[in-house]
Amino acid sequence: MKIRFLLPVLAVVYLAIPYLWGGNNYVMSLLVAAFIIAGVALAWALLANLGGMVSFGHSAFFGVGAYLSALLCINYRLPVLAGILMGGIGAAVASIAMLPALRLRGPYFALAVLAYANIFKILAMEFKGITEGAAGVTNIPALPTVMGFDFSSKLGTYLVIVTIVLLFTGSYHLIRVSHYGAALKAMHDSEDATRVVGVNSTLLKAMMLFVSAFMTGVVGAVNAHYINFIDPDYAFDLGWTLLPMVAVVFGGYRTLMGPLVGAVGIFMLDQLVFKALIGTGHQIMLGAVLAVMVLFSPDGLVPLIGDKWKRIRRAQA
């Protein structure tokens, strides 16, 4: 997971994939969608792994980021990149409303956040003066052209979202190896022991909620500028929570790569295999993957493979 690992990843992501499929709009659009999910999955996993909180409400952050960025860019002519940043910040601000839920235990937190997500969706429907209500926001400005390169193209958007996701992965890594990361890790199984040595556990959890919300908001905003149209049902769809959750449970939430691999894997499976085989109702397989993974490998597939790999290497040594 060090440089040895990073360089090949960068080479594949920035050179090999654009070189092989850069001109193929179908493949590129699949990858963009997959990395959108990956971004949310990463944010979700950060909250679960570091904050110890399982959220059923990430669609709230996704929708707030999408709406805020779209509306700022349309109504106040904000540059798209600034809008995306504001989308993230807005989502983080929105998460302040959820702070009271932090003192609830796991399942209750999850359900409380689900309620928040529903409330945000209803508000987006009802504040018609600002959000256009159920009609949705159209003509959202596309990603800009910089130095002659059109970032609104499929390839351009791919490069943007991949860069964002990699930056987020890096930030996640930095948090995880910091003292904050150590304290957060310790809080899971020994919260009192951590608090009596001076760790403000509520504040740390709140910070993870902000970071996770920010990341999700940014991704939601990018998506809005990519597809140029949003309405409350779409932007706040429970699917923005379900798919990343399945991805994380599939890929494993303990590792950095788990959510990314899980997201790309699950999304491709869903789009290319399940949809083709089943058609209407193909999400049944997502439910099945979720159930099977929780039953047989709650830590995900990647740790499972990782363990095997370690065992094989140890056996060889």
Partner: peptide, 28 residues
């Protein structure tokens, strides 16, 4: 105000040194 627990409560998932590091970093 520092304290110990009757039933030892080490901070899980951390090494001995990391336990002290977290305590020192956040306590001081």
């Amino acid at each position: 105000i520092g304290r110990t627990f009757q039933i030892p409560q080490p901070m899980h998932e951390l090494t001995v040194r990391e336990n002290l590091l977290v305590a020192q970093r956040f306590g001081t």
